[in-house]
């Protein structure tokens, strides 16, 4: 197993152990805002309440960022409103890099109307968020960075679902598959829930369609 693979599983174990994995196998599934139905919901932002777990996750994330982008290649970190912000702030602090907050919607006029903080055109920016499901909101933030004339070095999330079609280019510390692997190995999901979540990770559009959600983006 590669270092990144080992780190992904360790990160997934932190998430699973913090109780952030919720499953639904009877009644209504979870619905993502874009309309996908899912048997699993992962509340990654919950991790900010656990300092030790949070710190370890941060170290793993920093290692992955360094491997992928080379910390020297970055001028600033942009945290996505809302749950991306605390994590991005910690990352920026560790790397002694400037921080901006990318807002879900612009406020008023101007190049920086969708940001708190300031930066010059051409700033090499890493967009940072806690979670990416279908990448839909990441596209919004990416467009905001483009409008603000930033250079986008990459998009990084702690957890990328990585199960939906046409994913935008996102680097993730761990994926849903890592969560499922850890939950299975540690016996953290009952067999029925595990089966459904595995069926979902194997073919999310089909699972969504069969459970009342959308079938394609």
């Amino acid at each position: 197993m590669t270092g990144a693979g080992r780190d992904a599983l360790e990160a997934a174990r932190i998430v699973v152990d913090s109780g952030a994995v919720y499953t639904r196998t009877s009644g209504d599934p979870f619905f993502l805002s874009s309309g996908w139905a899912s048997p699993v919901f992962i509340d990654v932002k919950r991790l900010i309440s656990f300092p030790e777990a949070r710190q370890r996750l941060l170290e793993l994330a920093l290692r992955r960022i360094d491997e992928e982008f080379g910390s020297q290649g970055l001028d600033q970190i942009a945290g996505c409103e809302l749950a991306g912000v605390p994590f991005a702030a910690m990352v920026a602090d560790r790397l002694s890099l400037p921080l901006v907050v990318a807002l879900k919607q612009a406020r008023g006029f101007g190049r920086l109307s969708q940001f708190e903080g300031t930066f010059e055109p051409g700033t090499r920016t890493l967009l940072f968020d806690d979670l990416s499901t279908d990448g839909h909101t990441k596209a919004t933030f990416r467009a905001a960075l483009e409008r603000a004339e930033a250079r986008i070095a990459g998009i990084f999330v702690l957890l990328g679902y990585n199960v939906f079609p046409d994913p935008p280019e996102i680097t993730s510390l761990m994926t849903l598959a890592d969560i499922v692997a850890v939950a299975e190995r540690d016996g953290k999901l009952d067999p029925g829930a595990l089966r459904e979540v595995q069926a979902f990770t194997a073919n999310a559009p089909d699972w969504s369609r069969r459970n009342g959600g959308i079938a394609k983006p």
Binding site: G27, F30, F31, S33
Partner: peptide, 10 residues
Amino acid sequence: WRVLLEWGED
């Protein structure tokens, strides 16, 4: 409503 759906409410 958006958040309640995310949490599996009908």
